[in-house]
Every structure is written in structure tokens, then in C-alpha cells.
Design a protein around this nucleic acid. Structure first.
Length: 115
DNA sequence: TTGTTGACTCCCG
DNA sequence: CCGGGAGCCAACA
């Protein structure tokens, strides 16, 4: 069975990783890219979430930029939605609209039984 | 096949 | 701390 169709696109990889992100935790585009083996593909990560279809079980709102802020600022209600969702998970935001990355930052290795 | 775009990130002033 | 510029990757037309 030569499955040449098994080649998953970068998108699926991002979704799969973000999906592993537990509630109350967040991850930056850069970390997602690194986890996928492309520390410099942070842009592609954002692009993947941009194409994220509706109805997906992917917690895209747990993905934020390296500054710990929401990049969707000015994109639409999505930014406000993400913040509400995160707050609903227990994530707190600073007066500047930033979160404590060192506190909520999540890593896929943690779910591997390394902690 | 090439060219453009994007929910990014780092460096400099 | 804030603003501007450059570089990387992947998907789409």
C-alpha cells in the first residue's frame, strides 16, 4: 500500500499540535513551528490557522504570538473572541492585553509524560 | 512552473 | 517601550 496521499500538509500538523494543547494553557506560533520542525515557519503556522475551517475541534484561540498577545487585533471580533475563550479557560490577561507566557506557555513534550 | 500573500519573529534605532 | 525593516516557510492562483 503505497500511500502517497498520507502526506499530511503543514496545516494538519498544526491542527494536530494545537489540538494537544490543554485548556488553561497557551502556545506561541513560534513554538508550534518548532514542534513541527520549522522554528522559522512561524508565519506558515499563522497561515494554517487562518485557513482553519469552522467546526474544527482545534483550539486555535490557545495560539498567540511570541509577545503573549493576540495577533488578531484589528482582524475582527475574532480577537475579542479569543480573549473571551482564553479567559473562560482560566487564562488571565494583563492591562496591556498580554498574558504571562512563562506561566501559561505549553509544550507538546509535557503531554508526553515528561512532567 | 513562478509569483504573491500572511493570525510571525528577530534586529536595529 | 515603540516603530520600521528584513527573513523564513507553506499554500494558493
Amino acid at each position: 500500500m503505497a500511500g502517497r496521499e498520507n502526506r499530511e500538509t503543514f496545516y494538519d500538523r498544526v491542527y494536530a499540535l494545537v489540538r494537544r494543547c490543554p485548556a488553561g494553557c497557551v502556545i506561541t506560533y513560534g513554538h508550534v513551528a518548532v514542534a513541527l520542525g520549522a522554528p522559522m515557519a512561524s508565519r506558515a503556522v499563522g497561515y494554517a490557522l487562518h485557513n482553519l475551517p469552522a467546526g474544527s475541534d482545534v483550539p486555535w484561540w490557545r495560539v498567540i504570538n511570541a509577545t503573549g498577545s493576540i495577533s488578531l487585533k484589528g482582524r475582527g471580533a475574532q480577537a475579542d473572541l479569543q480573549r473571551q475563550l482564553l479567559e473562560g479557560e482560566g487564562v488571565r490577561f494583563d492591562t496591556n492585553g498580554r498574558t504571562e507566557l512563562a506561566r501559561y506557555r505549553w509544550w507538546p513534550g509535557e503531554a508526553n509524560g515528561e512532567g
